[in-house]
Design a protein around this nucleic acid. Sequence first.
DNA 1: CCCTAAACGAGACGGTACGTCTCGTCTTTAT
DNA 2: ATAAAGACGAGACGTACCGTCTCGTTTAGGG
Lengths: 195, 195, 195, 195
Amino acid sequence: MSPERRGRPRSEATRLAILTATRDLIVDRGYDGLTVTGIAERAGAGVQTIYRWWPDKAAIVAECVLDNLVVIDLITAHDSGDVAADLRAWLRESYERLSAQPAAALFRALAVAASKDTAIAERLDRQLGAPLRAALEALVARGVDSGQFRNDISADAAADIMVGTMMNSIITRRTFSPTRADDVANLILGGLRRQ
Amino acid sequence: MSPERRGRPRSEATRLAILTATRDLIVDRGYDGLTVTGIAERAGAGVQTIYRWWPDKAAIVAECVLDNLVVIDLITAHDSGDVAADLRAWLRESYERLSAQPAAALFRALAVAASKDTAIAERLDRQLGAPLRAALEALVARGVDSGQFRNDISADAAADIMVGTMMNSIITRRTFSPTRADDVANLILGGLRRQ
Amino acid sequence: MSPERRGRPRSEATRLAILTATRDLIVDRGYDGLTVTGIAERAGAGVQTIYRWWPDKAAIVAECVLDNLVVIDLITAHDSGDVAADLRAWLRESYERLSAQPAAALFRALAVAASKDTAIAERLDRQLGAPLRAALEALVARGVDSGQFRNDISADAAADIMVGTMMNSIITRRTFSPTRADDVANLILGGLRRQ
Amino acid sequence: MSPERRGRPRSEATRLAILTATRDLIVDRGYDGLTVTGIAERAGAGVQTIYRWWPDKAAIVAECVLDNLVVIDLITAHDSGDVAADLRAWLRESYERLSAQPAAALFRALAVAASKDTAIAERLDRQLGAPLRAALEALVARGVDSGQFRNDISADAAADIMVGTMMNSIITRRTFSPTRADDVANLILGGLRRQ
DNA sequence: CCCTAAACGAGACGGTACGTCTCGTCTTTAT
DNA sequence: ATAAAGACGAGACGTACCGTCTCGTTTAGGG
């Protein structure tokens, strides 16, 4: 049957313009400097067009994570065979990339959004946290399977620790030297590694 | 030798009333539900009295950390002799206490404030994060001294990991079972402990 | 040929509600008792809606004169043929009506607004003073034409005198008895009348 | 007996400084631009010192009229023998002087104050209006006595007309040319003069 | 090739919080 | 006791954003 859709269809170009504008503005103004009117202006859209498709500011931000965000593919783990090296590499690269200004600002903004709104928190977790933890859990699982890691530890606890440590450093703006990243990696590896 | 202070002195009672009102409101309305007028009303103060002493809402919240917060003494570490047990106990108790509603809400609000405002982030770290890490570092140092922990690990990295993991769980509202707390503790202990 | 009007058009109902609310409030609270928030509340309007169209309180008051004011038609002169009688009647009626409380309060408020703001003064004069004077000048001119008044006097000076005398009595709150009104009329008539 | 006065006596210098500051500020800021704090600052006095001696802003302004105002002696009438010439001269000079900027501004400010506050209106009338009218009434009386003016007109009505006309021209900022002043004078003289 | 209907930009609307200002009172120390 | 200094409670000010509501315009079907 026909899709039964009449009238002017939703403009994909506008949708993208809005999301892009949101991302850009969030990066250089923060979540609270973000204004719906501001988004509309920068996107060349009307305010109502935004409110037609998103319930509120938070939802737009949330959708940014789904569509535009580059961060997510930055932090998928490698798989070289040496799980310890993979884990070390992941921590180093993640710290490096996330501490770069635009990403860090976006991250902080998302953390703010998540703190305020449970729905965003969930979505953010589903889109960002969960796959991240899954990748790390897989990494740990590989280590266990290959006999490099102990089998009496909780893989998801390990993933949690790594993600949490990193997130916290970003939110509190305490920068991490590569040395510090290695210290963290070594400590966790110490707990994971089979003696 | 005179103290050279003229005019009516600042009212300590009012200052406290404002901070208390802020803390109370932040707990049951969140950082964004917090209103300067609301604070003034609840404190029985004038709006201008608030703006005379604090530049904005964020600064009031920041000062709350310095004066009122109970959280800080909740999470000082024990010293039983068995550092592993102390550390495990610390993680369990901290998770338990901080996940309790008023504290968790306050925490999230503070995290939001810190994400937005560098000054708050720094103050929060100085008042809350730093002493917390110091206590944990001391704990780890005791473990190293007593030969229970390895001496090639970074004590402050360990402290960072624990605080970060905990903070992140609170901010993202992902609850921790006591079992999970133990998993985390065991993993970190695995890295710390002398084989 | 399109009128080139975009966006939601200004609501005439709201504009009227604001002006009416202003007039009502000014009458029973005076110019200083007048509050922009108060106007908004009584008019069922938002504060910003007021500030979108009027720069400040004084301007709203000024616009009241243009649209709502009843005063202006109260004081148009009669034309009975006997110009002396017409003039006497005008003075009596005007004093009587303008000294009635609501009108007097409104008048004083307008005088305040005019004293502060040249633009308002001009507008007030254009809307109220000028037509008033014009009517009186016409009256005097009729007297001159019909040979009842001298032709060597300045009609607009005469109009000025009458309006000014009346205005001043209202502003300084010095009440005028009908006798006093007649005294004034007689004096002016003495100057106008052909000997 | 002792005069029974204890403590530091009221400072006359301060009192004058406050009144002078008030006058100066009223001239270049208008009645509403006048600030109690502003007066205190300019006078080098404390706010409370003002409130100790005057109930509110209006009262200070009122007292200014009593003590400082120069305007009053500007407009006392001459007595040359020719009352018509005296009256004409008075009108011309008054218009000239009162339309000069500082005086006009002060006048407008006082009119505003009078419009708002009955107490000021009364005091202003007592200090300024009444003696003014009295002087003019005396002038008119001289004219009547000397047979130059009719004796069936009301002297105080005549005074009222002249003062009112002048006041109104100042408040509404409609400037008077000397010609216009003469027109007004002639018209009134026409009514006053014995045919 | 029009007709209908939804989506669009613009922008006015009712609200709420902001941070500033002034008022008139209160509370200190200095004279 | 009076003065200057200045903090205080109260509340109006004008601005900024929120999310809703018209407007006139544009862009797709379906007839």
